[in-house]
Design a protein around this nucleic acid. Structure first.
Lengths: 135, 135
DNA sequence: CTAAAGCCTCCCCTGTAGGGGAGAGTCAAG
DNA sequence: CTTGACTCTCCCCTACAGGGGAGGCTTTAG
């Protein structure tokens, strides 16, 4: 019935190190320990593992995932919390995307400008005229 | 003529720690050292500093900036290298932006789905039905 | 001369999600 | 009984750009 860490890792398609790490940070604790101290997991551990991965895949961090799980284990329905988290993360992503788009556009325009500049007229003092320090 | 590190940092509007760090990694070396070991910088150090910041601002990492500066100090015109770097960074950004947009879209659709789900029908085994581990 | 301010090197710390490996105990098969 | 596979804890390492602070010189102003 109970799996040891190696079997869980293999069934989950991950590494023993990762499972131990998940135990340590509290997202996936073993059901119990054997007398000799081995971690023993029930079959539900596999579902937990999949949940953790799915949550990671939508951009949640392990610390946040731990909070969700703690709510659930505390008897609460974490859905409201999760929806909040997802909303905030989406907003953060919007902001981040805007930054990256602006940066990319600047790089593209730098690129176009660079093609019109003559490398021989590059002032050594300024390292490279493609990138302008505003001096 | 020569500035010490504190004056340079102040004129550049940055911290002494940062200037020391730039020395350590080779992007901004002092012109010389005083007898007592103090870093002494020429006025051109300010231009160098501004270049480094400008390059950082367009997404180049200090390691890459160091390479650009090494080329320049080796007597070469780094423009070609810089153009390459910029092109590659722009392509990386495109890829990264696409990832983030996909992630954000998934979050948004998760968000919409969550609003239609009933929290009371959330299976505790799966932690939260908003995020589906595919079990 | 003395005190304050500035400077030096060296070392540890941050966040993220683990990876690598040492040294030691445990379990199953031959 | 032994060997090999498995497991345990503990500690250091990664990227990135510095920040914080200790302990000890040096310089400058009063």
């Amino acid at each position: 019935m109970a799996m040891r860490i190696g079997e869980l890792a293999e069934r989950a398609g991950t590494s023993v190190k990762t499972i131990r790490y998940y135990d340590r940070i509290g997202v996936l604790r073993p059901a119990e320990r054997s007398e000799s101290g081995y971690r023993l997991y029930g079959v539900d551990a596999l579902d937990r593992y999949r949940f953790v991965r799915a949550a990671q895949a939508v951009g949640l961090r392990l610390g946040e995932i731990r909070e969700i799980i703690a709510l659930r284990d505390g008897g609460e329905t974490p859905c409201g919390f999760v929806v909040d988290l997802i909303g905030r993360r989406a907003a953060e992503l919007d902001a981040r995307i805007a930054e990256l788009v602006a940066l990319r556009d600047e790089l593209r325009s730098l690129d176009r400008r660079a093609r019109r500049l003559d490398p021989r007229r590059c002032d050594p003092r300024l390292v490279c005229h493609v990138i302008d320090g505003g001096a």
